[in-house]
Simulated assay, not measured.
Amino acid sequence: MKVNYECASCMLRQSREAIEHAVDDDEKRMDVTLDVLTFIEKNFKKNTRSNKLGTDLHHLIMKKTGNNDPYKVLREEGNSVAEKLIPSIEEMIQKNPTLENYVKAAVAGNIIDFGALDQTTDMETLIKKQINKPFIINDLDKLDSALTKANTILYLVDNGGEIVFDKLLVKKIKEDYNVEIILAVKEGPILNDALMQDAENLELYKYATLITTGAASVGIVEDYISIEMTNLLNSVDLIISKGMGNFEGLTEMTIEKPVFFLLSTKCNVISNEIGVPLGSSVVIKKNLN
C-alpha cells in the first residue's frame, strides 16, 4: 500500500512516542525529532510504500537514540493484558467452539497495537468490545475450505499480546485440519511486534514450526525479508496474515498463493483501502498474483 496524506501525521505521532520511550533526555529528544523531520521531508513522497517508510523511520529513531527496543515495556504489557483475558475468552469460545469464534478472538487481539493507537488506549476494554463485533467482510467459508485442502500454511503474526490470542487459533487449526503450520515472527524489535521469545514463551512450537521473517520491519517489507520467507510466501498452500502492517506490505507484492487477511481496521487509510468503516473486523481472501 502507498502512503496517504494522513500517514504523515500518524508517523509523526508514532515518532514522538517512540522517541519518548527510547530516551528520557529532552535535549536528545529534540535532536532526534529534528532528524525525524528531515527524514520525513526527504522521504515522504507520493507512491512511497507505507510500511517500508515506517520501518526506515523507526530504525532511524532506534539508531539515533541508541535504544534498539523502545517498545519493550509496551510489548510486555500487551502480553500481560492478553494473558489476563485468556481465561474469560476461552470460556466464551468453549460455549460455541467454531472456527469463526477462534478467528474472532485472534482478530480482537489485533487491537493490541501501540503503533496505530494512542499509548493511553484502554486495550482491555477495546478487546472485550471488539470480540463481540460481527465481521464486516467475512470470508471464513473460503478460509475453512482452503484449510481443508491445504498441506502447509504460513501464519504471519503481528503484535505482542495479540500473539497470545493467535495461539488459540493456531491450536484450533492444528487440531481440526491436517495441515503443517509455519509461524513467522519478526527477526528483531520493531514497534511492539511479537518476537521469537514471545512465541517460545507461549510454547507455540507445540503446534507450529517457528521462524522469523528475516527482518525487523513493520509488517512484511519485500526488500528486507529473508530469501527463505520470500520462498515460503510462494510455496505454502495458503497464508494467514495478521494486522495492518502485513496488509500494507503484502498487497504491494506478487504472491502466487491465496492470502487471508485477519485484522481490525484502526486507521482511516486502511479502512478506506478495504472499503469498510473505521474499527471494522474483517477476514478477507485476496489473490495477489
Score class of each variant (00 low, 15 high):
Met1Trp: 05
Met1Val: 12
Met1Thr: 09
Lys2Asn: 08
Cys7Leu: 01
Ser9Val: 13
Glu20Gln: 15
Ala22Cys: 00
Asp25Thr: 05
Asp25Leu: 00
Asp26Asn: 15
Glu27Lys: 12
Lys28Pro: 02
Arg29Val: 07
Leu37Glu: 05
Phe39Lys: 06
Arg49Asn: 13
Arg49Glu: 11
Ser50Val: 09
Ser50Asn: 14
Asn51Gly: 01
Lys72Val: 03
Val73Ala: 14
Asn79Ser: 03
Met92Asp: 11
Ile93Gly: 09
Leu99Pro: 07
Leu99Ile: 04
Tyr102Lys: 04
Val103Lys: 08
Ala106Pro: 04
Val107Phe: 07
Ala108Ser: 06
Gly115Tyr: 05
Leu117Met: 12
Thr121Phe: 11
Thr121Gln: 02
Glu124Ala: 13
Lys129Ile: 05
Asn132Leu: 14
Phe135Met: 00
Leu140Trp: 11
Lys142Asn: 13
Leu143His: 10
Thr148Lys: 11
Val157Arg: 08
Gly161Leu: 02
Glu162Asp: 04
Lys167Arg: 15
Leu169Glu: 03
Asp176Glu: 15
Lys186Cys: 03
Gly188Gln: 03
Gln197Pro: 01
Gln197Gly: 10
Tyr205Ala: 12
Tyr205Val: 04
Thr209Leu: 09
Gly219Gln: 01
Val221Thr: 00
Glu222Lys: 01
Tyr224Asn: 07
Tyr224Thr: 04
Ile225His: 01
Ser235Asp: 13
Val236Arg: 10
Lys242Glu: 01
Lys242Val: 01
Phe247Val: 02
Glu252Asn: 14
Ile255Met: 05
Pro258His: 02
Val259Asp: 07
Leu262Phe: 08
Lys266Gly: 12
Ile270Asn: 05
Ile274Leu: 11
Gly275Gln: 07
Leu278Asp: 09
Val282Arg: 03
Leu288Met: 08
